[in-house]
Structure formats: C-alpha cells, structure tokens
Design a binder for these strands. Structure first.
Length: 247
DNA sequence: AACGCCTCCAACCGCAGGATG
DNA sequence: CCATCCTGCGGTTGGAGGCGT
C-alpha cells in the first residue's frame, strides 16, 4: 500500500535535466535545513523531484567546493593509479580528489582514460612518470588474489572523508614548520601516526611535488601529496602483508 | 543547410547495507 | 528477528551539442 503510494509519487516525479530555478530552490532548502532526509527535501521544498534525484543533484553539482572543469595531469595520474589499485571503486577514488565527485571520476574514466589506455594498446603499458609508478606497475604485474583482497580490505577500512572543509586541512605553513618532523614519520612506526592523529591535525607529507590530491581518513592522518599516498599505502600494505607494523 | 553519427556528461536505475522501530 | 526507510554506490542510459559529409 505504502509502496504503491511511493511508487506513484516516484512516477509523478519530474525527471530530466535540472533547471536553474530548481537548483536555486534545492540549494536554498539544503542551506536552510541541512543535508539528509532527501525524501522530505523533495516533499517540503516544492520540487517535483524524487529524493534520490535531489540528493544526486546536490552531491554532484550544487554542493560547495565542487571543482568543475578539466582534470589536471596530477588528477589524471592519480585516477589511473587508484583505478589500477582499486578497480571501479569510484567513490574511493573520488575521495582522494578534492572537489571531484564519484560520478565525475567515473565519467572521466569511461570517456577519457579508458579510451586513452585502450588506444595505447594495453592497460599494463601505462606510462608512469616516476620511480614509484614503475615499481607499482611491476608490482601490479605480480598481483595475486591475496594481495588484491588485502588491499581492498585495507581501503574499505580506511574510508576517506571526501569533502574536508578548509579548516580540516593543515595550513601549508604548518607543514613547512613541521617538515623535518613529518618526514621522520615516513620511516617511523604507527605510534607517530597516532600521535599526529590524536593531536587532531592529521598529517601532511611534505615534498617538492606539486600534487594537490588530498587524503583525509577518518581514523588516519591525511596526505596532500599524490606520491605520499603511495608511500602511505606501501607502508600499510607492508604491515598488512607481513602482519606487523612498519618500522 | 540538413542530416546522421559520435562524444560526453548529467541523470536515472537497481541493488546493498545501515539505521530504526 | 523482521520490515521499512534512507542513503550510497556502480552500472547504464538518454539527450545535448559537436563534427563530418
């Protein structure tokens, strides 16, 4: 009965592209009442849209800090690498790309990168521009099921917070000030990570790179440099694969 | 100019999982 | 437990616009 009613409502729901005035209504509503309870949003806002449609529109288009436009080379590289590691885990990949949505990453992959990689002849022939990439490529060629399984477990248990607010990110000056200390963490044990985490600031690996990828984990430090993720990953993976913490 | 094909991306769909009563 | 609701995810689709003929 209730389902029939709901289905009827869904059938009546407006579909297709959103108009600017609809965007405005949704934006105003969410800014006033906050996110969540999307069914109520569609009912109370006066929008003749389904809750899912409202949620999607907000998440993929109207939400603050959405970055639109061309992907940078760094973002593209990161997507390729993450996809190699994680497969079609778009939300996880998007979580490493500040301001990008899973839908955007997925579309970008399907329209640009997949094609590009196919054109280049072979997936494993991805050209990496640094040593870590090459190592990862070699690693990838030696992948076995167990490795992939453990990697997925790791990624699943370290969900990134996709949209870190600006005040959650360490100021770059703070990074510079703590550069030496932070660098030590890359070769230290997990208690150091923990210290930084408990300190409340997360952590940023400094370096001479200019990658702008941001990583924010709900229970782990965050990293703003692309290759730092790989380093982090390598350290974690080492501990997972060998059953002990990195030293 | 008109047509058809192709590309890209916004939006939809179905399913799974968590929360709640 | 079970049913229901809500949310999030990945796969897929449809349409607008670009491009070639």
């Amino acid at each position: 009965m209730e389902d029939n009613k709901r289905e009827k409502n869904n059938n009546q729901a407006k579909r297709g592209l959103w108009k600017p005035e609809e965007d405005l209504i949704l934006k105003n509503y969410v800014e006033t009442h906050g996110e969540g309870n999307w069914a109520a949003v569609s009912e109370n806002s006066g929008l003749m849209r389904g809750g899912k449609s409202c949620r999607l529109r907000w998440k993929n288009y109207l939400r603050p800090n959405i970055k639109r436009g061309c992907m940078s080379q760094e973002e593209e590289d990161l997507i390729i690498r993450m996809h190699k590691l994680l497969g079609n885990r778009w939300s996880l990949i998007a979580g490493r790309l500040p301001g990008r949505t899973d839908n955007e990453v997925k579309n970008y992959w399907n329209t640009h990168l997949n094609k590009k990689l196919c054109r280049s002849g072979k997936r494993k022939g991805i050209e990496f521009d640094d040593e870590s990439g090459r190592q990862e490529q070699e690693q990838g060629e030696n992948d076995d099921d167990e490795y992939n399984k453990k990697l997925r477990q790791f990624c699943d248990s370290h969900q990134p917070i996709c949209n870190a607010t600006e005040d959650q990110l360490l100021d770059i000056n703070e990074v510079e000030e703590n550069k030496e200390k932070i660098m030590r963490y890359s070769t230290s044990d997990h208690s150091s990570w923990k210290y930084e985490m408990e300190r409340g600031g997360g952590m940023v690996f400094p370096g001479d790179y200019n990658h702008d990828a941001t990583f924010v984990f709900d229970d782990e430090p965050f990293v703003t440099y692309l290759d730092s993720f790989l380093l982090f990953e390598a350290l974690e993976m080492q501990s997972i694969m060998h059953g002990h913490s990195t030293t």
